[in-house]
């Protein structure tokens, strides 16, 4: 009983974290599912978003403006990865790794040290671990607004061209789409969202550390895959698919809360996450192999 009670007590925190990371996960969805581009920039750009937001808030900039700046900083990181890939011909994964590595130094430069604290006592922060229910609500508003904007955007000519690029680059060029530009647009948008998510997470925790983004891509992928495996059959509409990704992120944090409650050492958390995601990634493959049924796939063509 006490186990259940303490688990229930952890739920609001898990939900808030899940919603905030859900924004990152939607960014990962854009690159991984729509663009078919495994973008590892994320591990760096989430911290960049957090660092920029923290620095600006500490310097008296309004929180809303700091959030916009965090989005732009993340977007800039995405732009760098896009240039490395499209202009310099570096493979997607390596482009992301290079940006991510460079961002480690840049993030340290932005923060001036390895950690910045922003106290909810001194600043009007949007979310805070000290008020989890309210944070959930705020994060939910963000998530809903972002789903709305993305739903609109990916229905426009430009958004359709981005999706087409991920679905079939050959066909896209034959239809006059500049696939390099579309990758650029997708990466910018994706990492902008990741930066925004970092800004919210920094406020939620009350601090940002240079290691905040370590393994972020894994959490993002976990959310995307959980959302798809569990809800893919139900959620066909684009907005619902995005909602599924956010639900995936929440479930991820609930599972984490559960295993911590069960006594998992927090030092082993990353090992657990990696194993969990490896398993989740294995599910579609497993289904293909043993039941011959494939999931609704987004832009992947396993030959």
């Amino acid at each position: 009983m006490s186990f259940l009670a303490s688990l229930l007590k952890m739920l609001p925190d898990a939900a808030a974290q899940g919603l905030i990371w859900g924004i990152l996960a939607m960014g990962v969805f854009i690159t991984y599912k729509l663009l078919d581009f495994s973008d590892l920039t994320v591990d760096g750009s989430i911290c960049t978003g957090g660092a920029v937001a923290a620095l600006l808030i500490l310097n008296g900039v309004p929180v809303a403006l700091a959030m916009v700046a965090a989005f732009c900083a993340g977007a800039l990181a995405g732009l760098v990865t896009a240039i490395l890939h499209t202009r310099m011909g570096i493979p997607p994964i390596l482009s992301g790794i290079l940006t991510q590595l460079a961002l480690y130094s840049i993030n340290l430069r932005i923060m001036g040290k390895s950690m910045l604290a922003v106290s909810v006592d001194k600043f009007q922060l949007l979310v805070s671990v000290r008020n989890q229910s309210a944070s959930c609500l705020v994060a939910l508003v963000f998530v809903a607004a972002i789903i709305g904007v993305l739903y609109w955007f990916f229905g426009t000519e430009l958004g359709c061209a981005v999706r087409a690029t991920g679905a079939n680059a050959n066909m896209s060029r034959a239809q006059g789409i500049n696939t390099d530009t579309m990758k650029l647009v997708g990466l910018i948008l994706s990492n902008g969202l990741v930066g925004l998510s970092g800004a919210l997470y920094t406020q939620y925790l009350g601090s940002v550390t240079v290691n905040m983004g370590r393994g972020a891509i894994v959490i993002g992928l976990a959310a995307v895959i959980i959302g798809e495996v569990l809800l893919g059959k139900l959620f066909r509409n684009f907005a619902l698919r995005l909602a599924g990704v956010v639900i995936g992120a929440i479930l991820y944090y609930v599972v984490i809360a559960l295993v911590i409650q069960l006594g998992l050492n927090t030092d082993d958390l990353k090992l657990f996450s990696a194993a969990f995601v490896a398993l989740a990634l294995y599910v579609p493959h497993w289904r293909m192999k043993y039941t011959g049924k494939s999931l609704q796939k987004g832009g992947k063509n396993h030959a």
Partner: peptide, 27 residues
């Protein structure tokens, strides 16, 4: 020649804009 995970009408709409700049109008 087609994007398999996009709708038939979406494929056609992409082709209907061949050679035009792609903006923020409805796809």
């Amino acid at each position: 020649g087609t994007a398999g995970n996009m709708q038939i009408e979406e494929n056609l709409a992409l082709a209907a804009r061949r050679g035009d700049p792609r903006g923020l109008r409805l796809g």
